[in-house]
Design a binder for these strands. Structure first.
Lengths: 339, 339
DNA sequence: CTGAAAGCGCTAACAG
DNA sequence: CTGTTAGCGCTTTCAG
């Protein structure tokens, strides 16, 4: 028997009155305290049900001094990459009984303010890659909000989870060299995010180890259009590059488009590699690097929860493994070709 | 000159004491009330700055009776589809000064409870497709929380935004018939979501109009693996279907994989279509239907804001157009082939 | 212009 | 076991 209560929320007072007890008893009864007589408990429950009472989250949070909510800050949500991270984060957090607030910073200049505002609404938050500067991170942490850093270098003594960029990029470089490519260009902006920086560094190091020239870098956005446009420009130059190492798969797919348009064949005329292993990469036969994105998000949520439970626990920093996925966009003579 | 305040949040009382005024004056000053002397204003500002004061969101919300936050409920975030919707929603909501809480229901049986909990934290929310039943939606709306429905049929007199499914599916059916395909199978579960139901209905209707047999339906999950497995099974049957209409692109890409594995050529031996036009579709040459996903999310956020501003404004229901994107997975004789 | 004080809805001592 | 009461931090009358 649910009473339609209209637009005025039912408060604990009304339940108390209806059950003929005090609000303290209602509170106890509804949150499963031992200190309530069975019969009282039943009366309170009945009253609450009849009124369809749901305790105000605000009142409760204010009294408890906690939000039971987590935040996550990421640069954007285009492409499957961040979506996966955020989803896994939400899934774990939700199962742990915490709501999740999201904030995409894009490159708004008021990103810092928005993050600070977010910090007012959560008990802890995950902060990804290229969103806000270290000062802001430290400021939030100093305010007592647990923070876990995602895909960015450690700041202070904060929990940090990253994926392996540089080492796998070295491996990728070797793979490229192995296929005889010489004029290598990196498409992506190392200054744009720690991830991209690591990938560029690894590529450079790998090429250096193989005594090849340092790669040229074309700092662009990480989307299909930018990859396509940049490649179009590059292919007009002489000599043409013979390998494009792209900072992510979207760029690589854009490069593919431009190559096709120019009548070039991949990998014969031009090798292309990506990063992330999004769904499209598989269908384009793109050699790329697979990242455990769901792990990133899930671990962040779990760690945050554990730190909230025990603020004194030791700091953790982890680098998740990534994996070179060899398909055909680099050359086809390689043994471990994957479909 | 920022004072490190440690872990105890600065309250309005401390600012008031430091500025030598009452908390009421601090409140007024900081929220830009006219009723504060210029000199007082300056003193309060200085004190707040020195203490790095940020008003407690909880205190404020409780007093104001509003959260300045919106929720969005969706079934999942796998695949680019929902991610795009959510991102656009966040972007608009954030610009309107509202935080956003997300909730993925997956198919948890406690989805209703979680949505109800979410309702306690927001001023309004968007509810997508196949998440919770109409009763729950009405219950939330009845509690005075503005709701906008996304990609699901209207419930009561709530604002609703959908994309055109049935009509475009009819068009798709005609396209398929036009290419001479006869044994058409629909991959997807019409009971799984209103969107899928609409697509199936349109396909059936289109085939009927062309006097073709009603399509068989294989109710599966909407991911690559399910599409691949189902197609593998279908291709083992005699006679083989000659056209697979998939409820989304992931399924279609999975079907592609299975066809390839079976040594069949698309579209010669088997036509395949998808829905959503994700990035991978383009590279697989998949004929599909493009949906304005960002519009969906952005419009939802905007409408919600407008309704919050003016609860009495007229209800709106809108169906956003979708567009058949013809590539090569159905046959190549069509005039309007797109790259 | 400014301060005092009454809530907002709930939790958690503290007394019985 | 149960009720009283003091906050949690802020906004907003209501009086000066």
């Amino acid at each position: 028997m649910k009473a339609l209560t209209g637009v005025k929320p039912v408060t604990i007072y009304e339940v108390a009155r209806r059950a003929g007890v005090s609000i303290a008893t209602v509170s106890r009864a509804l949150r499963g305290s031992e200190l309530v007589a069975a019969e009282t408990l039943a009366r309170v429950r009945a009253a609450a049900d009849e009124l369809d009472f749901r305790p105000s989250r605000l009142g409760r949070s204010l009294a408890e001094g906690r939000h039971a909510a987590n935040g996550i800050v990421f640069p954007d949500l285009v492409g499957p990459y961040y979506a996966e991270v955020v989803l896994a984060y939400e899934e774990v957090a939700s199962d742990l009984g915490r709501s999740v607030l999201i904030l995409a910073t894009h490159r708004r200049r008021d990103a810092v303010d928005r993050v600070l505002e977010l910090a007012q609404r959560v008990d802890g938050m995950a902060i990804m890659g290229n969103t806000v500067d270290d000062d802001t991170v430290e400021r939030i942490a100093a305010a007592g909000i647990p923070v876990v850093l995602l895909a960015r270098p450690p700041v202070g003594d904060l929990d940090t989870i990253r994926t392996r960029n540089e080492e796998t990029a070295v491996e990728l470089a070797q793979h490229i060299v192995h296929h005889g490519h010489r004029r290598v260009v990196f498409l992506g902006d190392p200054d744009a995010s720690p991830d991209v920086a690591g990938r560029y560094l690894g590529l450079s190091r790998g090429l250096r180890l193989a005594r090849r020239a340092r790669p040229a870098v074309v700092p662009i956005e990480l989307d299909v259009e930018a990859g396509e446009a940049a490649t179009r420009r590059l292919l007009a130059r002489q000599p043409r590059p013979d390998a494009l190492v792209c900072a992510n798969d979207e760029v690589a797919l854009g490069a593919h488009l431009a190559a096709e348009e120019a009548g070039l064949r991949v990998p014969t005329d031009l090798a292309i590699t990506g990063w992330d292993d999004i769904l499209g990469a598989r269908f384009a036969g793109l050699t790329t690097v697979r990242q455990p994105m769901r792990d990133l998000g899930a671990t962040a949520a779990r760690w945050l929860h554990e730190r909230l439970e025990d603020p004194a626990r030791p700091v953790r920093q982890q680098v998740l493994p990534t994996q070179l996925v060899v398909r055909r966009s680099c050359g086809i003579h390689h043994p471990e070709v994957e479909r």
